[in-house]
Write a protein that binds this DNA or RNA. Structure first.
Lengths: 135, 135
DNA sequence: CTGAATCCGCAGGGATACTG
DNA sequence: CAGTATCCCTGCGGATTCAG
């Protein structure tokens, strides 16, 4: 099962930290919404909605540190504005990330069904545990 | 910055759980080594090496639950053998995962340099903090 | 508006020991 | 060999508060 000559240089293990950083929930979401163009802080907050402002800040700092996102401050204006956007490097991440998102969207239902089937087949205990409706 | 008509159906937010599950360190590694073909338990353990046997088991269970990996027991043989392999669904994940790995491998050095530059420019404090030898 | 700082609960995940 | 069970600790991440 080789995919052409796409074998990754070096061991896949050494790039795990990057995958962890890049593959986590918030990072993916932030990069994807920034793929539409530069945004301001609270604009992003409103668009993601489920994110806390702490996680948004932390995520943006991390991405800025990695050189995937730039940050521009408009202090002279009132109210002060801060814009974020993808760098060239960050933009190269869009395609692979989109591919993953696409795959997820395609298979989310199938996977859900698989999980339910698995749970029903193996652990009735866990099923009950997840089915507590009161409260 | 639209990538053709690749816009993902439904909000990207709803597929976050899948991305989290699929994008995490161990899941990626396991799928990638299984992309070479079916493997036995300890065989995988030896190949990944940095993984604890607990995390290997947990990861495999999760992948099996999602229907990405199958599991086959050879109890009649001694010593007992258990084989794992990718399902058809699991195999469809290889390409996007490879793309991500490829990107990571390409940019790991650049990102590392960016991080060092960022740390040097902003937080001398953090640099000292990371270099505390006493204790 | 755009954060930084603090508190804190909880789950992820490592190490170790035990079982069939 | 192929796990399961237990302990335990770290860090993610939410809520809240304060500041420029």
């Amino acid at each position: 099962m080789k995919l052409g000559n796409m074998s990754v240089p070096g061991d896949c293990e050494q790039i795990s930290p990057i995958l962890s950083a890049v593959g986590n929930k918030w990072t993916v979401l932030v990069i994807l919404i920034l793929s539409e163009g530069p945004k301001r802080y609270n604009q992003m907050r409103r668009e993601i909605e489920s994110i806390s402002q702490r996680m948004l800040t932390v995520t943006l700092r991390g991405l800025e540190r990695d050189g995937l996102v730039w940050r521009r401050v408009r202090a002279e204006r009132n109210p002060p504005q801060v814009e974020y956007g993808l760098t060239d490097l960050g933009r190269t991440l869009i395609a692979p990330l989109f591919a993953l998102c696409h795959w997820s969207a395609l298979n989310v239902d199938l996977i859900g069904a698989n999980q339910r089937r698995y749970d029903a087949a193996t652990g009735a205990a866990e099923a009950e545990e997840a089915a507590l409706p009161p409260r």
